[in-house]
């Protein structure tokens, strides 16, 4: 293989009309995607009187950093005025184990269901798929009762369990479908070599799951980091995630809305997923499956 760490569709070319069209499409698409972001950024640097003038596309006439400072350290949620920084540590405490566990369970499920065909596997998959279509809010009441029974309600492990539960359908689906494209000969060869359930999983399957692990991480990091409802209901007072504060800042109904602070707070809270998206690139590599067969 010529260059395994670089992506490749068709054969590499130099600057041709086709390539120019390609970049033109990408730049145009990027501009479309960035338009709302532009509005958010300029709004976050404007003062409130300027925002109320109503020209949403104009650059700020007088740049102010105050909304950013307020969002991070001063915005009030009830009587506490400490901005969104308070919940950040809690958000990490919830996100890291939840993301890790839900991806691990999803990968095991997908692998077991694809290759081992365990008894009742179809039932598991069918129930998970169907369950994924019911609005989360319907689950709240029964889950509160169940977690209370096992003393997990309003605890850190409790909120992690909740995230693992709700991540399971999509994670299972993701890995099951990814492994469906893995040549079955690979699995057979590993079994002839005497590999057991866990050996094949850790030595063969996981190493070739790079791109799908990234997709899974994108889904879970974003979903769990931005979760508001479960954090509010299940985490308990000592572990409230940052989004509860974000919500308190953004979502007031009968008070003055500080749009500039809202925009700044939203961009700040999105930083963690954005960093994950950006650095995830190196795992988006091609051709590992082929290498595994040959290697």
């Amino acid at each position: 293989m010529s260059d395994p760490i670089h992506p490749r569709g068709a054969k590499p070319r130099h600057l041709t009309p086709g390539r120019i069209g390609l970049y033109a499409f990408l730049v145009f698409a990027a501009a479309f995607f960035l338009l709302p972001f532009y509005v958010m950024v300029v709004t976050s640097f404007k003062t409130m009187p300027e925002i109320q003038q109503g020209n949403i596309f104009s650059l700020p006439s007088k740049l102010t950093l105050a909304p950013w400072v307020t969002a991070w350290a001063k915005a009030c949620t009830g009587v506490n005025c400490e901005g969104i920084r308070v919940g950040v540590l809690n958000s990490f405490k919830i996100m890291i184990p939840s993301t890790f566990l839900s991806i691990l369970l999803g990968a095991i499920n997908g692998y077991a269901l694809s290759f081992w065909r365990p008894r009742g596997g179809n039932l598991i998959f069918a129930v998970l798929l169907m369950g994924a279509f019911i609005p989360y809010q319907v689950y709240l009441y029964p889950l509160v009762r169940m977690l209370s029974m096992v003393s997990l309600y309003n605890t850190l492990p409790g909120i992690i369990v909740v995230h693992v539960i709700f991540g399971m359908p999509v994670m299972t689906l993701l890995f099951r479908n990814y492994y469906a494209a893995v040549p079955v000969d690979l699995f057979k060869a590993a079994r002839i070599d005497g590999g057991g359930f866990w050996t094949i999983f850790t030595r063969v399957m996981l190493p070739m799951s790079g791109p799908i692990l990234v997709v899974a991480a994108i889904l879970q990091v974003t979903g769990i980091w931005n979760d508001f409802l479960f954090g509010l209901i299940f985490a308990g007072r000592d572990h409230l995630p940052m989004t509860v504060e974000l919500n308190n800042i953004v979502n007031t109904t009968t008070g003055t809305k500080a749009y500039n602070v809202n925009m700044a707070a939203t961009i700040l809270t999105a930083m963690v997923p954005l960093i994950v998206y950006f650095v995830s690139g190196r795992w988006f590599v091609r051709g590992i499956a082929a290498g595994a067969v040959k290697g």
Partner: peptide
């Protein structure tokens, strides 16, 4: 224990 949103829904 303030929680904003939806006219008190949350």
């Amino acid at each position: 224990a303030a929680v904003a949103g939806g006219g008190g829904d949350a």
